[in-house]
Design a protein around this nucleic acid. Sequence first.
DNA 1: AGCACA
Length: 274
Amino acid sequence: MAQQTYDRFYIESPLQDHSNPEIKTLFISGLPDDVKAREIHNLFRHRPGFDTCQLKYTGRGNQVVAFAAFFNHQAAVAALYSLNGVKFDPETGSTLHIELARTNSRRKHHPGSGPYVVIDNRTRKSLHKLEVSSDDGGYESDDPSETRQHDSQDEDDVANAKRDESAAVDGAEAIASNPEGKAAERNVQACSTLFIANLGPNCTKDELKQILSQYPGFNALKMRGRGGLPVAFADFEEIEQATKAMVELQDTELESSDRGGLHIEYARSKMRKQ
DNA sequence: AGCACA
């Protein structure tokens, strides 16, 4: 029978599956109801591999949720680990709850759309509102049409949102259409070598190696002095192992730290074996 | 904000 085939699709596991490598989108709940899309965007915009995000007012109970799309699964997981459970609003003590989304955000290319999108399903009335904005200082736009309302596109987007109530819909694609390119946060590729910065001037290789050796898959460490401050490269066997070390060691303060904790990213290229 | 080694 084909019955078993169906069963696996309907397992309702209490455990969150963080290992589905297809998923590059995060689902964020626990947001205060006055949250702004700009705040969500600012949460994620400097995370490696971040693409776009959207804020969504659900029809049900007027809850607010958000979706954050990344360029790859590992980057999404890294952001998940580092932001899950953090207090979002010190006033209310509200805490972010982040999981992998059930489906990836669909990309629909709207020319001139911004880095984040708001979809408001709160009222059944026809006063649905879709806001497209890039006014957070993050992107300099040379296209003034970005900030105007696209009335005819609203219908399209809201219809899209309703097609799948709980899944992500089209995130805006600003990066690909950004001409002079704030070369900063483009497609960040996961890599099994990590780039480690924000080290104190007298951080030693041994000090770093001692920390890193606790992590499975750790291979090799290289340090370079650059313009005074040292940076390091740490190579791992697998991307997943590098990711784990990155998310757990992110912002860690060493004895030698004098300017805040470690800043760790995927290296731009894998360490050569020599 | 800082990414080498070949």
